[in-house]
Design a protein around this nucleic acid. Structure first.
Lengths: 184, 184
DNA sequence: CCCTTAAAGCAAATATTTTGCGTTAGAGGA
DNA sequence: TCCTCTAACGCAAAATATTTGCTTTAAGGG
């Protein structure tokens, strides 16, 4: 369920998907989450509710699909000239985004859905970003280089944990601590 | 919303809450999650649907409330004789529980709800458990002792991160690595 | 250009959620 | 103990949302 982008990529299906995704994002800024309904999304997207139910099954799955897409990185990772700087910059942006109200919402939508598919996509995207940062560091000759796994466990894991359980205790200082400890 | 246990603790309210919680847990083992409905829970609990809607608002909040309660530790933490042993034992049990299908469900229910209230409860419970383990270690004279925060960031965070994003990559070896690294 | 079919539309049938109002059970005081 | 007060529940009607069978549309392949 979810992405049918492999099938008939340029056709009606794709148009409907885009319209529905955009409708969700637009409505998300107008109505509180527990007031968001499928018929509402359908009307805004210009499709019938049954189209959404047939394709996504229920609101939860739709929201997870939209959130997973929005969590895909759009901006390229800044190149600050050092591994530590790149990690701080990237993780810092991610932290700010996810601490915001819409960010917390996206996190909840992703983690609240039944299928692990969307979460896999997010993890994959994070790994890709980290790999890019590491390959730059390697090109610069920085050493020793941590593994992607070490970065996930040392930086992304505590960051994500706090985003879910105690977002107010997060700060840039936390990040600096985790980055420094992981690069040691 | 959620716990009204402070108000009229032994009365009708408390009975209804218990009946509803038990109904959710029972039905959770019989029907797939996306087929679970409020009227179904209401019938099993012997209350009317409107009672549930008035008290919990919607199914998502109810599920989050039930999950948060189930996530409260029931068994006391085993005393293995060493800090490392206690941590491994406790985290190991938690890992196994949360990797199971019902455990993954509980995690999703908790993280998927809007209010941070339930998540705070879970974090609080984890902190309490860790504090108990640390106080035992202190009584034994083990030193140096890590802080609760260090244990959360070093062990619980990577564990929780993987439980959500890549549960199949988890193993006892991961735990051993995190525990060892954190105690160093 | 025509054929095939996956996906969308439509509308009727179900199921759910919401709401107004009457009822009940428990808490607190005389 | 009995009386009063009120939060929470039950009931049932109304409003919404979801499901489903059937029809129509439009994109892909020959």
């Amino acid at each position: 369920m979810g992405e049918k982008s492999a099938v008939r990529p340029g056709g009606r299906s794709a148009r409907v998907q885009r319209a529905v995704h955009e409708a969700v994002q637009a409505l998300d800024e107008e109505v509180p989450r527990d007031k968001l309904t499928v018929p509402q999304v359908a009307e805004r997207a210009g499709v019938t509710p049954s189209t959404i139910y047939r394709r996504w099954g229920n609101l939860k799955e739709l929201l997870a699909d939209v959130a997973a897409e929005r969590l895909q990185p759009d901006a390229p990772v800044a190149d600050t000239g050092s591994l530590e700087g790149d990690l701080m910059a990237w993780a810092g942006v991610y932290m700010e985004e996810m601490r915001s109200t819409p960010g917390q919402q996206m996190l909840a939508d992703t983690l609240g859905s039944a299928s692990t598919e969307q979460r896999q996509r997010c993890l994959q995207a994070q790994q890709d970003q980290l790999r890019l940062i590491l390959s730059r560091a390697e090109a610069r000759g920085e050493t020793p280089l941590p593994t992607v796994e070490a970065l996930l466990d040392g930086i992304m894991a505590p960051l994500t944990y706090r985003l879910s359980y105690a977002p107010q205790t997060l700060s840039r200082a936390c990040l600096e601590r985790w980055v420094a400890a992981t690069l040691r």
